[in-house]
Design a protein around this nucleic acid. Structure first.
Lengths: 340, 340
DNA sequence: AGTTAGCACTCTTTTTCATAGAGTGCTAAC
DNA sequence: GTTAGCACTCTATGAAAAAGAGTGCTAACT
């Protein structure tokens, strides 16, 4: 990979990202001032194809970048470019206007991402079990039931209706809450230390109430393991010429509707900061011609959520990465603020 | 509209719903045993077109039903058919397997509807302000803040972080909660009787705490006026031949992403029980070639939510209506159960 | 040895044209 | 009132031709 090959590859990737059309040697020579003739470019292209950076649809159409080509472009050619001040200001303004509740932060984040990039965006809201336990309270409902309200570090409140076991009174539950609060304060929900359960059991005494307590904690965990997924831009996506085929669109929409699947895909891609996964590199076979960029946000060093862009491999990586990076910082900050 | 015209119109609508192709006289005569020749059918078709029940794309293609044609079909020709026992059993089973929390009832309802009808489905979860106030509680958070938990009749719990005004203690808040609970129990949130506010004010005494109380109630209302909208089947929809055109699909997806808009559309269509709105009849211009069927569910006579199917005017009305009717009853029941 | 011009060849896209098929509308006969 | 027949219209389909873009290779050039 000498200097010239690099420049030509870069030009091809850029052109293709812009035009969505296979790039030929002549056009390339005309548009970019590479200082060599189309013939030379053709030779270089043949080399680049041999090396696996480019692909050929058929004998006589221009080249398109392969996954490897994009990979090289993203890793070695893209200067990390921060988002422009104007865009930042716009985003901040949008947030201020739209966001009234914590839920909406995620929704609007997804919206902004899809608007700016023209692709599908996904936002995984913080997982409760990754957040630390803060406090558990009960509210009386009637003689048989109470509402358990569970709060975490990240500003989330979860509630659940729980039946009172026979013979237990609301006061028993209050006591149970006190014990649990004392024991679990600050503990991460997905890693309850085994000792703490024993301690709770000992403190509570009554076996039936202890079972109820465990039940509540487990139920909350159960539900919250499925973090909320916010999707945006399914309509936007159709502007991309690669989705002119309705069948393909259908496949993708069906995929997007499988929340479980999308969560799995996002989890698989989580890394440190920005992660780019290009075409073939994706594990899921329905995404072999898609690229996924993810960014993760943290709270106190602990990973609690993910935002992502998904689009055709021919994607404006630079823009998407800069945006994701910014939104990520933003989101971390917002979640931070909601911490108490 | 004599007997024969009616039969012919019915045959055309059914054929068109099934095939999505304009229906011609010859084919119609062959498939249905109408006892008359194609020529007669042609004459009748011409009449039906004159009367506005049928339409013509161009001189020599078969007829397709107009909005008026569908309307006649739906109103006068469709026998109200309940859902088959097998389907019902399937749905009930599905619910049992999938639904673990109240949220999921709505999500899965949307999913079932879109699966069965092959169209987009929408479910509006109960509005809090249509439900009756049940109880307000506070949980201490830190020295400056508390969590207000608001519960309603319909089984929903809403929480919100509220700052304690200067000089107020948590005990003041507890007292305030007591007053509010006593005063507002059973009152519908969107119609707080003016007298009750005065009463609360008098009881609380302290002006600042009173303001905080009002603030909390208002904020909750504010947020809950936007009931949750669950969407399903955007992928399913693409199986319909009328959506072979990507541009059209894009428009619809963009429309569906506008939650506000969708809510408005649903609200506009709400009636008693099943409502069918066909093509032109729709107010929103992006839905002029779509039909929307809605059903509303109630709690104690009060309307609290809506479920809907949206698809091309060429829709299996019979199936969709039967399904919606069943799901509706089901949902009313579920919400009822969650009542306390 | 690297670079370039030239040219034959390939493959796609677009256009044109002809044809087949489905359907209508009208007239005249039943 | 119903039907058969027929001319006419419009669409869909497919073949063939032409245009366009691009490659790969060879030979010439620096």
């Amino acid at each position: 990979m000498d200097e010239r090959k690099t420049r030509i590859l870069e030009a091809i990737v850029k052109d293709y990202i812009e035009s969505a059309e296979p790039v030929g040697s002549r056009t390339l020579a005309r548009k970019h001032d590479l200082g060599v003739s189309p013939a030379t470019i053709r030779n270089e292209m043949a080399d680049l194809e041999m090396l696996g950076y480019l692909e050929h649809i058929h004998t006589s159409s221009g080249r398109i970048p392969s996954s490897k080509g994009y990979r090289f472009y993203v890793d070695d050619l893209l200067p990390p470019r921060p988002l422009g001040a104007r865009e930042k200001a716009l985003i901040d303004k949008w947030y201020r206007a739209k966001v009234k509740a914590i839920d909406e932060v995620f929704k609007e984040t997804a919206r902004i991402i899809s608007r700016v990039t023209g692709n599908v965006s996904m936002v995984l809201a913080p997982q409760m079990n990754k957040a630390a336990f803060r406090c558990l309270q009960f509210l009386p409902l009637d003689d048989y039931r109470a509402i358990a309200v569970l709060m975490t570090d990240a500003g989330f409140v979860e509630n659940r209706i729980v039946p009172l076991p026979d013979g237990a009174s609301f006061e028993d539950f209050q006591r149970m809450a006190r014990v649990i609060n004392d024991t679990l304060a600050g503990v991460t929900l997905d890693a309850l230390p085994p000792g703490s359960l024993k301690k709770i059991r000992a403190e509570i005494g009554d076996e039936e109430i202890y079972q109820a307590a465990i039940e509540i904690i487990n139920r909350s965990l159960d539900n919250e393991k499925k973090e909320r997924l916010y999707l945006g831009g399914t309509g936007e996506m159709l502007s991309q010429p690669e989705f002119r085929d309705v069948e393909r669109v259908k496949e993708i929409l069906l995929m997007l509707e499988e929340e479980e699947l999308m969560r799995d895909i996002l989890h698989a891609h989580v890394g440190n900061g920005l992660t780019v996964s290009i075409g073939q590199e994706n594990d899921y076979k329905g995404a072999k011609d898609l690229s996924i960029i993810t960014a993760t946000y943290r709270l106190g060093g602990e990973l609690i959520g993910t935002i992502a862009v998904m689009g055709p491999t021919r994607m404006e990586y630079e823009k998407a990465m800069a945006l994701l990076d910014y939104m990520n910082g933003h989101l971390s900050e917002v979640v931070q603020k909601f911490r108490w």
